[in-house]
């Protein structure tokens, strides 16, 4: 299945939206039935294409949120008000509607779950999405690979997958979930309340001697900052896999 997931001609196909789950005020998960779906690896993405009546097309990439073994293909999308595609996906698309997509795409930013190295996931905002696919995959295959997630959000209400992450982190299977909030300090909050820095990484990340597999995903400045800190702390730059969202798009 892994072979099928990364090879073969890339063709556009239709998925049918089965369910919408609101994650935060700006972010929703969309669950699709895709009849010809060849399967995917945790961390891969799909391209989505919208076609207007006059033939104008807009294309965007969205990370897959579901685990490879999940029945439906899930995308978790943040609505960007000035975006061309996300306001349609989060706001206009309804259950039963069809959406044109192609994938799975990518092979670099993937975690297969078949290696012993500890897993270090660092996500900023909707950069959590491909990391969530990895954590769901890890849970589905009952992997005991030690894993840590450091997740940076603006405020508590913006924390995507908050309850599910709480459950996964409490399962006692070697996953630790650490949150930091950059714009809010709620009453009783025990997590961090600042941007990711070296002290935070020293407290939460596996040291470079443990040779963790590192995945960092988020907006470009977030990814650059986290990756630079890890390299300065002695991590091998080539063991740090990054995926940037950029400053525009949507």
């Amino acid at each position: 299945m892994a072979r099928a997931a990364v090879l073969g001609r890339l063709t556009w196909q239709f998925g049918t939206l089965a369910e919408i789950v609101r994650e935060t005020p700006r972010v929703s998960s969309l669950f699709f039935d895709v009849p010809e779906w060849p399967g995917h690896l945790a961390g891969q993405h799909v391209d989505v294409r919208l076609t207007a009546d006059d033939g104008y097309q807009a294309e965007r990439s969205y990370s897959i949120a579901s685990a490879p073994t999940d029945k439906r293909l899930a995308l978790t999308v943040e609505r960007l008000d000035d975006g061309e595609v996300s306001p349609y996906l989060v706001g206009e698309l309804r259950a039963g509607d069809r959406l044109e997509l192609r994938g799975p795409i990518g092979g670099y930013f993937v975690w297969r779950g078949d290696e012993d190295r500890p897993l270090l996931l660092i996500g900023g905002g909707s950069g959590i999405v491909p990391l969530m696919s990895m954590l769901r995959h890890r849970a589905r295959i009952a992997s005991k690979t030690p894993a840590r997630l450091l997740f940076s959000s603006r405020a508590l209400a913006d924390v995507i997958y908050r309850e599910e992450l709480e459950r996964l982190g409490a399962a006692g299977d070697g996953l630790g979930v650490v949150h930091t909030l950059t714009r809010e300090k709620p009453a009783g909050w025990t997590g961090y309340t600042r941007r990711i820095d070296e002290a935070m990484l020293r407290e939460t990340a596996w040291p470079s001697e443990d040779s963790p597999a590192v995945f960092v995903c988020g907006p470009t400045p977030f990814v650059e900052a986290a990756a630079s800190l890890l390299v300065a702390m002695g991590h091998d730059a080539r063991s740090i896999k990054t995926e940037r969202f950029g400053a525009t798009g949507g």
Partner: peptide, 21 residues
């Protein structure tokens, strides 16, 4: 510098051209 993406962003484009991942 904030507009910089990485190779993941053109995975689809490259596969259109080269037909493999």
């Amino acid at each position: 510098r904030d507009m910089k993406l990485d190779g993941n962003a053109i995975a689809g484009l490259l596969r259109e051209i080269f037909a493999v991942e």
